[in-house]
């Protein structure tokens, strides 16, 4: 993971590098973060942070990540890729209720009274959850007083511009440039 901090306040840059490193390594998405870039200019004042991820999971249909098997009790879902297990279980709970969805084994879920047809077209959106985690992480890193914020979101990257004053056009351009630069890489 590469963290780059720029800005005129050298000691501030070093501290924010440490803060970002610690918070990212403690987060549950640390392995998915590829690069973090910070531009801190407290004199202006603005703070831009851009986090790029790698290996973002795209939207998946349940039938793509599991084997569905009709049984007397209901539909048996055998998970092929364990990384999706928690998301899938949450999705099934959300759709059919906790009482009808039973995780009998680590990779086996039985949906009582539910046919496989109802399940196969369900979609998981891990991207959304991931984006939420990144935004939470960014909120923890940026200085608390900078409450006027604008974010730029694309598939594998979230950039946020924050200040305590009204956002100036030139800052927005800078944030946008950082966002697009990172995207090219």
């Amino acid at each position: 993971m590469n963290i780059e901090v720029r800005g005129q306040d050298k000691s501030g840059n070093e501290s924010y590098k440490e803060i970002a490193e610690n918070l990212i390594s403690e987060s549950n998405i640390s392995t998915l973060i590829n690069k973090a870039e910070i531009l801190a200019e407290p004199q202006e004042p603005f703070f831009i942070i851009s986090i790029a991820t790698e290996g973002v999971r795209s939207t998946k249909k349940v039938e793509d990540i599991s084997i569905l098997d009709e049984s007397d009790e209901g539909c048996q879902v055998i998970i092929k890729d364990e990384r999706y297990a928690t998301d899938l279980l949450s999705k099934l709970w959300e759709e059919f209720g906790k009482s009808d969805v039973e995780q009998s084994e680590r990779l086996k879920i039985i949906c009582h009274g539910v046919s496989c047809e109802e399940i196969e077209d369900l979609e998981l959106e891990p991207e959304e959850e991931m984006r939420e985690s990144i935004i939470n992480l960014i909120w923890q890193i940026i200085p608390e007083g900078f409450r006027v914020r604008k974010s730029f979101v694309s598939n594998d990257k979230v950039t946020m511009l924050a200040s305590e004053d009204r956002l100036k056009e030139k800052w927005i351009k800078k944030a946008n440039n950082i966002h697009e630069d990172n995207m090219d890489e």
């Binding site: 407290p42 004042p45 200085p143 007083g145 900078f146 409450r147 305590e164 004053d165």
Partner: peptide, 9 residues
């Protein structure tokens, strides 16, 4: 209550 930030602190 409002100690954060610079100008706004």
């Amino acid at each position: 209550a409002r100690g954060v930030g610079r100008r706004i602190s």
